[in-house]
Nucleic acid binder design. Structure first.
Lengths: 213, 213
DNA sequence: AATTTTCTACTGGTTTTCCTGTATATTGAC
DNA sequence: GTCAATATACAGGAAAACCAGTAGAAAATT
């Protein structure tokens, strides 16, 4: 471990105090070298062109480009660079997106210094790393999603949206150039799938399961 | 400025990296002395009993007690201590609550070191301090709130909730021991106030304006 | 105490939704 | 090409929601 070359990392986060915190937390560790810090995506991408970088600590909330998009771009241009996602409060959907787009790990910002070093080392060596809380969040979301979020067809989602907009069956039928009777069938199927008995409740649970807006 | 005694501050935040960041950002400044750091409310309150503290940097998201509640408690027990609220992304309602409960200032976590020192000094001297972004958020929320969020009466809110639960007019009437005709009147008034023409749309806009859940 | 707001309730309608059951064309997956 | 899933469509009827206008009683505010 002594002779090992340091891992070159770049930190991207628009909060100066988090940046400073990471610098401080990682400062003691010999095996990690903070090459650069940025508060936006554009500058970071520019830096990546001409410098050695092993791992990026990437905040999800950036001022210019969405963290998820940023991750995708990094993976396309520099497949060798490992991405460690970072955020404060984490909706499962965002974490999932980050992973899909190539993030090798994910940490909440309440991570300790140990976790941080551990995560960086692990993903540098080609492994995945997810903080214990993140794992819990992902597990919950997986077990929930399958259970109580029924799959809606494209048409159903569309009609659901129109119902939520306050359109009547007839108005929807006109808009979609189909029979009102067809719209009613969809409506019925929607309520059956979502286990409710009228449009008001339908809209509520749809928003809860983030199928709307 | 040279002979001035340092301001004693305490930092409360459950993110170690933010804590470290604040330590680092404030470390250079002679006029501010970080007396202690905590990651939860309970320990902080205990510490306040026996130590001099001028200013508290208080995160809104704490593991044990809500930041707003925490602020209230601090003000009750130690009215002399100034509170500077801190958070990443800030809904206007939370900032408003913090101010109501006695916070003298509010900063987003993307504040710079300068802003930070400035804020602490200002509120220590009895002034208010709000970061420019916070001011913008508050201004927006004030100008918006009056405009498009109609005031609902207690009864209307209650019935709105029951409608969103999928209950019919008759069911609601039974539950509240009133005539179905009365419920219908409320229903109509709700739709009129929210400028929609059926219950589905009513539920959607109610959730959008966070009058539900 | 006076005034405004909110809650209550009604009449008499029209429109829309919801229920049950059935059935064919179309699309997508294998 | 076959099979399953999806989108389409209908009938007939019951239930619920929506519309327009009115108005007295109870609270809350001033």
């Amino acid at each position: 471990m002594e002779a090992m070359e340091a891992i070159h990392i770049v930190i991207v986060d628009d909060h100066p105090m988090v940046l400073e915190g990471l610098r401080s937390l990682l400062g003691d560790d010999e095996s990690i070298r903070i090459s650069a810090c940025f508060t936006n995506a554009t500058e970071t991408l520019a830096y990546l062109e001409g410098n050695r970088v092993d791992v990026i600590l990437l905040d999800v909330n950036l001022p210019d480009i969405n963290g998820v998009e940023m991750g995708k771009m990094v993976r396309e241009r520099h497949p060798a660079i490992k991405i460690l996602g970072l955020s404060t409060y984490s909706e499962p959907s965002i974490i999932n997106q980050m992973i899909k787009n190539g993030a090798k790990g994910y940490l909440l910002k309440n991570a300790t210094a140990d976790e941080l070093v551990n995560a960086i080392t692990q993903i540098y060596n080609g492994h995945f790393y997810f903080g214990s809380e993140v794992q819990k969040i992902l597990a919950d979301s997986v077990s929930q999603e399958g259970k109580d979020t029924p799959k809606l067809t494209r048409r159903e989602k569309h009609i659901l949206q129109l119902i939520a907009d306050g359109k009547t069956t007839n108005a929807i039928a006109e808009e979609l150039f189909i029979s009102p009777l067809t719209v009613e069938t969809h409506r019925r199927n929607l309520m059956q799938k979502m286990e409710v008995s009228n449009a008001a409740a339908l809209v509520k649970v749809a928003i809860e399961k983030s199928l709307l807006q």
